[in-house]
C-alpha cells in the first residue's frame, strides 16, 4: 500500500527534520508531515549564534532550509498536511491527516511549540496593526518608533536587542524583578542605550485606532498603572506545546508537554518524541537536533526488535 511507511515524523522543525534525516539515512521509508512550512520556530529566528559549526552565526531560516535539503537528500518525503487524529493502540500506528490516512511501524512526534497569544483588551483587534509575534518579520515597520517587548526569557531579550536596529526605544516589560536569560544576552541588553526595562510589570490593555498608539502597563507589586505611548508591542510571553491531537493517547505533563523515557519513547510503545514538544529543560536548535537523532535511532531499534 502506498501509504505505509516505516517511520512517520510529525512536525518539520529542526527536531523532525533531523529525525527524518537519520531514519532515512538508515534506509527506512520515512514520511514527514508539516502543516505550515518547514523550520519551525527556528525559521523565524534572526540569527542563531550558538549552533556549533557556524562561528559567524547563521540565520534561522537558512539553517532550517539546509537541514531540510539534507533530509530530502536521504529520501525523506515531506508532506504538507495537518495531522488530525492518531491511533497508537496497535503495533501498526495509524495517522489521519488532511491529506488522507497513513500507517507506520513507528512514529516520531516533533510538533514543537507555538507562542502564547496576548489576551488583554485591544489585543485581538490590533494584532497585525502594531502587535507582533515575529521581530524578524515586522521589525522594519518600526523604524524610529518606540516599542514594548513583553517577556523576560531568551526570546524576549534577544528580539529586543534585534529591534534596536529599527526602533528608537525598546522597553522590555517583564512580570518578574529580573530577567531569566543567558548572561551574555542580559549584558547585551543592558549595554544597549536603546533598551530599558519595566520590571514587576504586566501589560493590561492595548489602545489605538487602527494602529497601536498606547499600552497600559501595571506594576504587579504596587498596583500602579501607567499609560505608555508606543507604536509596537512584540509578544514573547511563553509557549504552548502543540499536543492537542495526542491528548489521551500518550502521557503529557501538567503543561501539556510529552513525557518520554531516556530513549525518548513516549508512554505508547513505538511512539517517540523529540525537541521543544518534550518536557525537556532546554529548548534550543542544538538540543532539538540531538533529540531528533536519538529518537530516530530509538525508533530504528524498536522496528528491528
Amino acid at each position: 500500500m502506498a501509504n505505509e511507511y516505516d517511520v512517520i515524523v510529525i512536525g518539520g522543525g529542526p527536531a523532525g527534520l533531523t529525525a527524518g534525516l537519520y531514519t532515512a539515512r538508515s534506509m527506512l521509508k520515512v514520511k514527514l508531515f508539516e502543516k505550515e512550512g518547514v523550520g519551525g520556530q527556528a525559521a523565524i529566528t534572526d540569527y542563531i549564534e550558538n549552533f556549533p559549526g557556524f562561528p559567524d552565526g547563521i540565520s534561522g531560516f537558512e539553517l532550517s532550509d539546509k537541514i531540510r535539503k539534507q533530509a530530502e537528500k536521504f529520501g525523506v518525503e515531506i508532506g504538507y498536511a495537518e495531522v488530525t487524529s492518531v491511533d497508537f493502540s496497535g503495533s501498526v500506528k495509524k495517522i489521519t491527516t488532511t491529506d488522507g490516512e497513513y500507517e507506520a511501524k513507528a512514529v516520531i512526534i516533533t510538533t514543537g511549540v507555538r507562542p502564547t497569544k496576548l489576551d488583554v483588551p485591544g489585543a485581538a483587534e490590533l494584532t497585525g496593526r502594531g502587535i507582533s509575534y515575529c521581530a524578524t518579520c515586522d521589525g522594519p515597520f518600526f523604524k524610529n518608533k518606540r516599542v514594548l517587548v513583553l517577556g523576560g526569557g531568551n526570546s524576549a531579550v534577544e528580539e529586543a536587542v534585534y529591534l534596536t536596529r529599527f526602533a528608537s526605544q525598546v522597553t522590555i516589560v517583564h512580570r518578574r524583578d529580573e530577567l531569566r536569560t543567558d548572561k551574555i544576552l542580559q549584558e547585551r541588553a543592558r549595554k544597549n542605550d536603546k533598551v530599558d526595562f519595566m520590571f514587576d510589570s504586566v501589560l493590561t490593555k492595548v489602545s489605538g485606532d487602527g494602529l497601536v498608539s498606547g499600552a497600559v502597563v501595571k506594576n504587579v507589586k504596587t498596583g500602579e498603572e501607567v499609560t505608555v505611548p508606543v507604536n509596537g508591542i512584540f509578544v514573547f510571553i511563553g509557549n504552548l506545546p502543540n499536543t492537542e491531537v495526542f491528548n489521551g493517547k500518550i502521557e503529557l505533563d501538567e503543561k501539556g508537554y510529552i513525557v518520554t523515557n531516556n530513549n525518548l519513547m513516549t508512554s505508547a510503545s513505538g511512539v517517540f518524541a523529540a525537541g521543544d514538544v518534550r518536557n525537556n529543560p532546554l529548548k534550543q536548535v542544538v538540543t532539538a537536533t540531538g533529540e531528533g537523532a536519538l529518537a530516530a535511532v530509538s525508533a530504528e531499534k524498536y522496528i528491528e526488535s
Binding site: E36, G37, A43, I44, G60, F61, C134, T136, C137, P140
Partner: peptide
C-alpha cells in the same frame, strides 16, 4: 517582504 521567513514559507 524578502526578509520575512513566514512569507517565504507561505508563498508556495
Amino acid at each position: 517582504a524578502a526578509w520575512c521567513g513566514p512569507c517565504r514559507i507561505v508563498a508556495p
